[in-house]
Design a binder for these strands. Structure first.
Lengths: 329, 329
DNA sequence: TTCTTTTGAGACAACGTTTTCGCAATATGC
DNA sequence: GCATATTGCGAAAACGTTGTCTCAAAAGAA
């Protein structure tokens, strides 16, 4: 590798002079400046980041982003948002923990070991202890959860509101017997969505019925099948799109029409999924990319210890498609 | 930050001794060893990666992975594969170029600037010049393209074979008037898939008909519409799943039944997509994760200058679903 | 006891930069 | 022509490690 020394030797100057020229600092004569620049170019010199980082105040920030599953469009979008704000001076190290919490812990330590300047944790299931520990050393951004630790910023979606507008939309479209297929409450968001649903139902004089289950297509399918057997339903608000897709399958199998007999609304608005399924699925959209952007920005703010916001709250909006376009008959 | 010096001071020893203990090298008395280890733990010492990397032979490798769109399941899976092989001693820096070739170039330079030890380029549209330039400094892995440069490894899928078995499958299922909705040939793979299709058709005494278009759902939809107007078709082999989804939409709109009247097969086997669309879509599966794994492994091999393979060829397999289950009537 | 070997530990250079300081040489002001 | 200000450049320390080399002390062999 060609170093600053090599350049200095060829140009017959000291390393300090070369460094000054390369960084545009200090005073160097125009003549030498040109000469040194030319040599550097000819030699295809690239500064050694590691050395540079050692000797000076860092000017380039590295931030680590850990997601439980990069294959999940939600996290892919998050990653996009984070990367979008990162110009020349920020490097994002993206890591996939494969939904394995133990691996996630390891990765976080690995990031620390590799000397990142801050960490964004995409998984809301991460343990509080870990967040506490890491935030002692580095600024941290987390999602969907509030922390009171210094050095931690929370980015949350107003899940309550999202669930509320989704439910209200079904009511407005004429559906009345609306159930909610929700999650078990180990995910904080599932609780919030449930509450939003309940509030909307109550505000309109309807009685809420919640069916907790898991978060994937199969869980949604099975639960919907059970519900159809058990009671009279004409509307379903699901805690996410996957569950909704499962529910749709169950409803179709039963010979019922969507949206004529039953209206369905999901959550997350995974476009690919929502547009592909038939009928296309209405869903609550999270501004995921924007949330990722906010995460990166606030992390950089913390790193350079500028103003610090403790919490960002984003508002969801409803994307209406065929699956909830109104009851008939 | 706590450094080795701090530990040395507290333990009343020299930095060299601390370093030896921490690295398990050299001879240190059991008593001091314990003492130093304890202090390091209490102080939550983390070695400075940058300093370490400067002074010694590197033991930890960083590899950069650039993908055009992390939101695309294909590249997300690739990223998974790459990350799967990376244990303690390898760090993956994943970057999304947002389908912007200029940005991609910048990112590659950025990676070089950040001192990665090798680069995996996920985008087969990358310019040859860039690959050439980068490979002068770093080992590079590319996909779907062959290079003769030293320091470059190619990982390719046998697209010809994939297209061949997909087409043959349609023929075996009783379809005869099979068309191919392909890509424009700026993507090398599109050419290969087209050739595979043609070969299968000719081998069975059928005449191939190729309709080149783009790579997304809308392009597939429009082209299929045109085809249905223009000629008598009972089978479609599409260059990817997105195009196939578009074709399915056009076919359904026309009032034709899949697979009864027309059989459809896609390429890439994006499970989420293929299983969600109705009828579910048969598709040629690429072992993407395995390819990512191979990429990472061979890159690490090159970095540590062990044996070097110039090219890896992977075989696709067909996943049969409803959309091609046989012609009726 | 005396000589040799082993053990434990510190001093110091090196890695490639940046940055501060000092000092000549030149330019400026009177 | 002298004092002062400015400019151009290099020497050297520092960043946190690792690794080599040296050396004293302890242990072993005679």
């Amino acid at each position: 590798m060609v170093t600053i020394k090599d350049i200095a030797q060829i140009a017959n100057v000291s390393v300090s002079t070369v460094s000054k020229v390369l960084n545009g600092k200090g005073r160097v004569s125009e003549k030498k400046r040109r000469e040194i620049l030319k040599i550097a170019r000819d030699l295809k010199y690239t500064p050694n980041y590691y050395a540079r980082r050692m000797s000076s105040r860092i000017r380039v920030h590295t931030i680590g982003l850990i997601v439980p599953d990069i294959t999940n469009p939600f996290f892919a979008k998050l990653a996009r948002g984070v990367q979008r704000v990162c110009g020349e001076d920020v490097l994002v190290i993206l890591m996939d923990s494969f939904r394995d919490l133990e691996r996630e812990e390891k990765l976080i330590r690995k990031l620390r070991f590799f000397g990142v300047d801050g960490i964004i944790i995409g998984n809301s299931r991460v343990s509080d202890d870990l967040v506490k520990e890491v935030s002692q050393f580095l600024p941290v951004v987390v999602f969907d959860k509030n922390y009171e630790y210094k050095n931690v910023v929370s980015i949350v979606l107003d899940n309550f509101h999202g669930a509320y507008i989704a439910t209200k939309h079904l009511i407005d479209k004429g559906y009345r017997n609306i159930v909610h297929i929700g999650g078990t409450h180990e995910l904080y968001v599932s609780l919030q969505r449930e509450e939003g649903y309940k509030a909307a139902m109550k505000d309109h004089g309807l009685s809420p019925r919640v069916y907790p289950t898991g978060y994937d297509e199969l869980k949604g399918y099975k639960m919907m099948k059970r519900i159809l057997k058990a009671e009279n339903v004409d509307g379903v608000f699901c805690m996410n799109d996957l569950v909704a897709i499962g529910a749709i399958r169950a409803i179709k199998e039963r010979g019922l029409k969507i949206p004529d007999h039953i209206g369905v609304v999901g959550f997350d608005n995974d476009e690919e999924l929502c547009e592909t399924v038939s009928p296309s699925l209405s869903s609550v959209h999270q501004p995921v990319e924007e949330m990722g952007e906010a995460a990166a920005k606030s992390l950089v703010d913390m790193i350079s210890s500028r103003i610090r916001v403790r919490k960002y709250v984003f508002s969801p909006r409803l994307v209406v498609r065929e699956s909830s376009s109104g009851k008939k008959g």
